[in-house]
């Protein structure tokens, strides 16, 4: 792609979050807050290209998708990965369907410049972090520094607590789930920080889980990809009505239809359904 054309498309993408936040949602709007481009190293994918992923999501009514890239988990050329992700998202359709979420590894040299580029060069709406694969925990001071930097730049931060069931990982490619509890101490110390936890699983996303209630009170967002249980969404909202729970699929690692049917399985009020489908996601980016 010519540089000028790329920059023009990137500008469109950069404008997308604000646009999404300010435009009234279509009645059937559906925002998937948890998709990834590429292939997970140990699995085949049903979406070999971003276009295939977008096609399947659109077929099921998704109107926008927040995209990271599986490459971000293992690659150390973070700036390159983020630029590729941004370009790939810009190439799809009119450049507004995928919202790119770049990654930062605060253990790498000069990660601060990666963060600067995400904001100033690529104009990304947010970051997606993989602490367990990048080698730090959430009580690491370097993470605190990163979170503060993201907050200063108005970047929304997604933290992936897991990528796959740790019971079934390939023995040479393992990562324990991230412990989210340190966020309870950290978030009050970082004004402006906005955080969504991805792939929480039942370790966090259980209706009776005290950690979930505390994180919710701290203003953390969550998504549905690994939410399980009978009528899981409504069961959770019955206990925590104010929970910021957005729709997420973890596609293409998971079958997208698994996430979609969760919306059907739970008896939700129209307001609850709208909040999960698009309301919380829009509010998350609008509050920048």
């Amino acid at each position: 792609m010519e540089r000028r054309r790329f920059l023009a498309r990137a500008a469109t993408v950069a404008a997308a979050p604000a646009l999404l936040a300010s435009t009234p949602p279509a009645p059937g709007a559906l925002i998937d807050t948890n998709v990834s481009l590429g292939e997970w190293p140990t699995r085949r994918s049903w979406a070999g290209t971003p276009a295939q992923l977008a096609s399947r999501l659109r077929q099921h009514g998704v109107t926008a998708a927040w995209a990271g890239t599986f490459d971000a988990v293992l690659h150390t050329d973070v700036a390159g990965i983020n630029a590729q992700l941004s370009a790939a998202c810009a190439r799809e359709g009119d450049g507004r369907f995928f919202l790119p979420f770049g990654t930062i590894n605060p253990l790498l040299p000069d990660w601060e410049d990666d963060l600067r580029r995400c904001h100033e060069v690529l104009h990304l709406p947010g970051l997606r972090l993989y602490p367990n694969y990048h080698g730090y925990s959430l009580d690491d001071r370097r993470f605190a520094t990163l979170l503060a930097g993201a907050a200063r730049r108005g970047l929304f931060v997604q933290i992936s607590l897991s990528m796959e069931d740790d019971r079934s990982q390939n023995p040479v490619f393992t990562a324990s789930p991230v412990n989210a509890a340190p966020l309870l101490d950290l978030l009050p110390k970082v004004p402006g920080a906005r955080v969504m936890l991805l792939n929480c699983s039942s370790r966090v996303l259980g209706p009776g889980n005290p950690l979930l209630a505390k994180l919710a009170k701290a203003g953390v967002w969550f998504e549905t990809a690994t939410l399980e249980g009978v009528a899981g969404i409504s069961s959770l909202l019955d206990k925590l009505p104010d929970l910021r729970l957005a729709f997420g699929s973890h596609a293409p690692y998971y079958y997208f239809e698994a996430a979609l049917l969760k919306l059907q399985e739970s008896p939700l009020t129209p307001a609850q359904l709208a909040a999960v489908r698009h309301g919380h996601a829009r509010a998350a980016l609008a509050s920048a």
């Binding site: 049903w46 399980e228 009978v230 997208f256 239809e257 698994a258 996430a259 049917l261 059907q264 399985e265």
Partner: peptide, 15 residues
């Protein structure tokens, strides 16, 4: 179910 959802397990077949 009840530990799992109907949805996630139906979805894998339908998808």
């Amino acid at each position: 179910v009840h530990g799992r959802s109907f949805a996630s397990q139906l979805g894998r077949v339908l998808g």
